[in-house]
Structure formats: C-alpha cells, structure tokens
Design a protein around this nucleic acid. Sequence first.
DNA 1: CGGTAAAGTGAGCAAATGCTCATGTTCTAC
DNA 2: GTAGAACATGAGCATTTGCTCACTTTACCG
Lengths: 200, 200
Amino acid sequence: MADRRSPVQVRSRAMVDRILQAATRVLAERGYAGLSTNRVAAVAGVSVGSLYRYFGDKDDLVRELRVRSTQDILGDLTAAMSDAVTLPTRDAIRQVLATLVAALQRHHALTSALVNEVPLGAQSNVLPEVEQQLGQFTRMFVAVHAPHLTPAEAEARIYLALGVTLSTCLRIALEPPPGIAEERLVDLTADLLHTGLVLP
Amino acid sequence: MADRRSPVQVRSRAMVDRILQAATRVLAERGYAGLSTNRVAAVAGVSVGSLYRYFGDKDDLVRELRVRSTQDILGDLTAAMSDAVTLPTRDAIRQVLATLVAALQRHHALTSALVNEVPLGAQSNVLPEVEQQLGQFTRMFVAVHAPHLTPAEAEARIYLALGVTLSTCLRIALEPPPGIAEERLVDLTADLLHTGLVLP
DNA sequence: CGGTAAAGTGAGCAAATGCTCATGTTCTAC
DNA sequence: GTAGAACATGAGCATTTGCTCACTTTACCG
C-alpha cells in the first residue's frame, strides 16, 4: 500500500486534477457502474498505479469528487448568504435559491451523476454540508419571523423548508422543464417558502 | 437462453415470489452493489439457473421489483384520488399526501433502496408512473382554481407542485425527523401546496 | 555530478460477477 | 404407466474488477 497521497511536485498535482477530470467524464458518460479505476486511469492517460498513489481507494476517488464540488457550491452559497442579510426576507430567499441553482448547474454533469448514480450507502441525504448550511439560514428566518411557534412547530417548518429548497433547486438545475424560465421557477419557489413556511 | 418467463405451475410461481423477496432483502441489506444474482439465488434458497429461467436478466429482476411496488402504490393512490374528489380542495390534497406517505412507508426498505441505491441510468425521475398520476390530480386542481393563469404560469406551478409533493412525501416516509408527528408534516405540506401553488 | 526521493508504469493476480448448459427431477395428461 | 413438458440444479466459463508490486523515469539538491 505504501504512503499514499499528497502530491508535492507540480507534475503530480496536475495528474491528480487530470484523474479527477477523467473520473467526472467517465461518471457522466458511463454511470457509476462504468466507473472502474482502470477506465479512469486510461481516460486520464495515466497508469492505474499512479491513480492508487494518490487515491488509496476507489471510494476515496469518488469522495474527493464530492468534496471538491461541494466546497465549490458551499463557497457560492455562503457568499450569497452574507449578501442576503441586508435584503428584505423574500429577496434574500430568492437570491440564495438563485445562487444555489446556478452553482448546481455549473457542475451539471457531476452533480447529476453524484445524485442519480452514486449510491450513498449509510447516509441518506445528498449534499449534507449544503443542507446544513441552508439549515442555518432557514433557522434564522424562522426564528426572526415566527418566534411565537413552539419549538416542535418551528422544527417541522425548518425540516420541510430544507427539503423543499434542496429538492426543488436540484430539480430546476438538473431537470428544468422545457419552455419555462428558470427565473420564474425560482421566484415562485421563493414565494412558496416565504409565505408558506417562514411567515406565521 | 431458451424460452424464459411465465411460470404456470404453483411451485414455480412460489419460487418467483421467493426470488423477489430475497432480492428485496439483499437490496436493503447490502445495497445495489451487493445485489448479485448468485447471492439473491442463495438467499432465496434456489439455484441461479432457476432465477435465470424467470428473469432473463439482472436488470429484469430489478425492473420487476420496481413494477410490483409501483403498482401497489399506484393502487392506493388512485383509490385515494377518487375518494378525494368529493372533499374540499385542501382536504383532498391532504388525503392524497397522507395516502402516498403511507404507501411509501409500507415499502420502506424497498423504496429506500430503489431511490437511494439503484442507478436510474437514462431516465431521470424516480417513480415516473406515480409522478404522472399525481400530475393529473395537480393539473385538475390548478385548472379549477386558477383558470386565469397563462398556460406557462400554470405549467410552472404544476411542475413545482409535483416536485414538492413527491420529494416531500418520500422524505417524510423514508427519513422522518425525530420528535415531529408525520401527520403534522403532511398537514403543513398540504397547506403549502394549497395556498402556495394551487390557489391564484 | 550523483544520489535520493518522488513520480510514474503496467503486467497480472485474486476475487467476484453475470450467465449458460448439460443433467436431473417433478408434474400433468392421456 | 408413461411420454413429454415444465421445473430445477449447480459446476463452471468468460469477463471484469479493484488493487499490488517490481520496476523505470523524472525532479530536486548538496
């Protein structure tokens, strides 16, 4: 097994990137079933041995794909969330939704494969970090706008709001309906969340 | 390959059931990755050859699992939908949601595995038949209660309502939050759909 | 330089998988 | 009873998979 990981030279850093790119392509083109380490290495123009020098495991490779895209999305999301605090509630929600949709869309192929192809095993939700980050946002709004709710009622609303937000943004980003402007969908969703779950 | 399928004696009919049961168990316990035809046959206490007599293919087996659970869910759903036509809109929505949640819950292990483990390949949405059936219901309500909407606006609302309905029911059935009554969640969701997407 | 560590290679192994087929058993109908 | 159809078996083949390891090449540094 030897001492895996952590490339230090430029050359190897580039290789890690090429491997991840190749993995993304293979995942998008042939699904998780077609994602063999041999194939990824071949597509990357690299030998399997090299792949196993930087990724101890096939799962490790997939995990890294997930981490990278998640971090990228999270970056956008937190930025949008800090911008949003100064806006009126409905606009804040709208902006966060729009940002999330755009971020998901930017990684369309990868996100789609990660959501639809890769089995999640034990854990149940996709993009748990994104969900957690959105959770803080939602919690804040509910606390501010509906302080009279019992804790259980508040939790129920947060649970639903989170589910609706994530699933709807994913759907808009990955399976947009033909002939409907995505902006309009985001608007409607923001209204839905605002008047239906955040307000009392 | 020979002439697959269609058991005519009781013995073989029973075997088909045992195979499907075993497949469900294996899928729930070891995920899609662990679903090998050899293992299913072993768990069913049957030889691989017998499995291949009635299921031409591994995909065929999974497809059959999907078909059976889908049909069961669809049965409940259509019944609930005909009962619901006499109810006030909000109650109708509530009842359909509750029925869907209950039906999904009844097949908890299988549905969970089918949704989270099995890759869908080309098609993008899970439970397409259920979605289509719900679509008719939603379309009807939107047409009745918001006839003044432009077609595009109506389509946008239907698209969102369908997504919210399916994803929320799946989430309530498969990952219910601790300490919150599912009934309350269904109520809130019904309100959300009613006032947010069906009404003008 | 030249030596050492890092980077990179690829044949190939052990295990698993999907599936077949030659063989045997049980049922049904006459 | 017996022919023949339906049912059932499981050893095993061909292929693929994840991964290793003995080895070569490249970069770095005194």
